[in-house]
Design a protein around this nucleic acid. Structure first.
Length: 265
DNA sequence: AAAGGCGTCAACCGCTCCCTT
DNA sequence: CAAGGGAGCGGTTGACGCCTT
């Protein structure tokens, strides 16, 4: 529809950021917060595209970034999340405090892919390499197939239907009680059939000591949240759903998850 | 020491989603 | 309801550094 460019490209810098630019951006955001990215560069005195500023802040300058090497626990969590979610890097990043989608994406492409290949696992399908050729459907579809096929999910490309849960009519097209397979149903497939991925191995850093232990609840038709402070009652996605009900009708479920990292703690 | 190959990661691009009008 | 605009996302690129020859 011929939308206008996000910035005046002729008068913007590109490429690596200088220390001065970083300083300006940090100072501005500290003073004014993360506001309108489009107008931020001008207000901050930066000759940068708003998108570029946002990316620089989110991926590099944010004070809560962890930096440093990924731990073995993070590796495994990324693998499991990718198996379930596909290339939804922002969703995966939402479960890894202090990590950015870009960082995880790069790490996946440079490290984990190779790691999986060395294990004889296809990084796309998460199946053994010889079996992957026989059946190209990713396991996050195969294993969830009974449910999602019934729910009529058909997400873009080969990505898992879990991501589209809640988008539009997908959300409410099925009574969750009867169609949700019992946990043991997938027990033989090598995945935690409660489909909850614990962050328990993750030790909060000194910067986030108050962070409650949390785990993704992937109870098949809902992506919710387990939290210790839920009284040990397990999945609270039902409650969360009530809270979100007004807006969730139009929201993707993964829009719901991501803020839990920020707002839910 | 120089050249080429390779790996890593910051940054860009184009697209989609969602909110506002 | 439709159009426009802002924000976010995922794929891709390019620069840089390290390693090998």
């Amino acid at each position: 529809m011929g939308r206008s460019p996000c910035c005046e490209k002729a008068h913007t810098n590109k490429g690596a950021w200088t220390k001065e630019e970083d300083g300006r951006l940090v100072a501005y955001i500290k003073a004014h917060g993360e506001g309108c990215w489009r107008s931020l560069p001008k207000a901050a005195g930066l000759l940068r595209c708003g998108k570029s500023c946002r990316l620089r802040w989110i991926n590099y300058l944010r004070p809560d970034l962890k930096r440093g090497n990924f731990t073995e626990e993070e590796d495994e969590l990324i693998i499991k999340l990718h198996q379930l979610l596909g290339n939804k890097w922002s969703l995966i990043a939402g479960r890894l405090p202090g990590r950015t989608d870009n960082e995880i994406k790069n790490y996946w492409n440079t490290h984990i892919k190779r790691k999986l290949l060395a294990r004889g696992v296809d990084p796309h399908t998460h199946r053994p390499l010889n079996a992957a050729a026989a059946n190209a459907m990713p396991p996050h579809q195969q294993q969830l197939q009974p449910h999602f096929a019934a729910a009529g999910h058909n997400h873009q490309q080969d990505h898992p239907p879990a991501c589209s849960s809640g988008s539009g009519s997908d959300e409410d097209d099925e009574p969750s009680g009867s169609a949700t397979p019992p946990p043991s149903r997938h027990a033989g497939l090598g995945i935690d059939l409660n489909l909850s991925i614990s962050l328990a191995p993750y030790q909060p850093t000194s910067q986030e000591p108050d962070r409650p232990a949390a785990a993704v609840c992937l109870c098949l038709n809902r992506l919710g949240l387990f939290q210790d402070d839920a009284g040990g009652k397990g999945c609270i996605c039902g409650a969360a759903e009530q809270q979100q009900q007004a807006s969730a009708q139009r929201q993707h479920m993964f829009r719901f998850i991501a803020p839990l990292e920020q707002g839910g703690q």
